[in-house]
């Protein structure tokens, strides 16, 4: 737009018009720069990870076992497997509980005091530091079974995932139009039939997205598995034995005084970021649905 134009509107607006225009442009630019700035940490992190992690990235690091100090070979296949195992255990424990809990508090007893309590506690739990989940699993599983184990790590991750899954599932159920419920109840369906045939299929994409986000978050956690699953140099052969995980592998190896081991920690970080963002992107693309 020309500032010196003689158009009727410019005449009307008078001198303040270009001051405002410039101020507007400046603020727009500032907002753009600030939002661009938020991308800087993300991209510099990615850049750093790629730069430090790529050189060692090959098939062997994904399948090999952690090298002894000083040796320049092997990988962290057992850590990838261990993370998968513990997230799997966490999922098996937390997903049914979270989803069924959400169904109960939203579909069966939405106005009950009990439901309000569950909802409140779930919200509190999301804010609890993840190391507390680890402490809980330590006391609850490690001390009672007498050893560090994948099971203990899985329980810690389950505690971490449960509130996320419950809250996401309840939100998903809330997103299902109540006109569907009216129609179903109006036709003489029971609560179970209505939930099973109508409500759950509608809510499933959003529930799955919540579950995937919980998985992604749990996979990246160090604190809950650090003193529940500990670490293991070898392949996991039992759920009841100490088990390696990617995050603890990174934690351990990054502080070793050998440059090869440190580089391997970078590569493991890169893989972890790939896995976590991969799950997130997958969840977004599969389960995001247009609102009708």
């Amino acid at each position: 737009m020309s500032l010196t134009g003689t158009h009727f509107f410019h005449q009307q607006a008078g001198r303040t018009s270009w001051v405002r225009l410039v101020r507007n442009q400046a603020l727009t630019l500032l907002c753009f720069l600030l939002s661009a700035l938020t991308l800087v940490p993300l991209f510099s992190l990615l850049f750093l990870l790629l730069k430090k992690g790529l050189p060692l990235l090959n098939f062997n690091v994904l399948t090999g076992l952690p090298p002894a100090p000083g040796l320049e070979e092997g990988g962290f296949g057992n850590a990838i497997l261990g993370t998968a195992m513990m997230v799997g255990i966490g999922l098996i424990l937390a997903a049914p509980l979270g989803i069924l809990g959400a169904i109960f508090i939203h579909e069966y007893a939405p106005y009950a005091r009990f439901s309000a309590v569950v909802r409140f506690v779930a919200k509190l739990l999301t804010g609890i530091p993840s190391i507390i989940c680890g402490a809980f699993a330590f006391a609850f599983v490690v001390l009672t079974t007498g050893n560090f184990s994948a099971l203990a790590g899985g329980v810690a991750l389950a505690v971490l995932m449960l509130p996320t899954i419950l809250i996401a599932s309840e939100q998903a159920l809330r997103g299902v139009s109540s006109s569907y419920r009216d129609a179903s109840y109006g036709l003489g369906a029971t609560a179970f039939q209505t939930i099973w045939h109508i409500v759950l299929p509608e809510a499933l994409p959003a529930i799955m997205m919540g579950v995937m986000i919980a998985i992604a978050r749990a996979a990246g956690e160090t604190a809950p598995v650090l003193f529940t699953a500990l670490f293991n140099q070898n392949w996991a052969h039992s759920l009841m034995a100490p088990t390696a995980s990617l995050s603890v592998f990174i934690y351990n190896f990054s502080s070793l005084p050998y440059s090869y081991q440190v580089q391997m920690a970078w590569t493991a970080s890169l893989i972890l970021v790939f896995i976590v963002t991969g799950i997130n992107i997958l969840a977004q693309s599969i389960f995001r649905r247009n609102t009708h």
């Binding site: 006109s179 569907y180 129609a183 299929p201």
Partner: peptide, 11 residues
């Protein structure tokens, strides 16, 4: 049977 204000067919 009941018919509602806004048609509510199942998806």
């Amino acid at each position: 049977g009941m018919v509602f204000q806004k048609s509510n067919p199942f998806p």
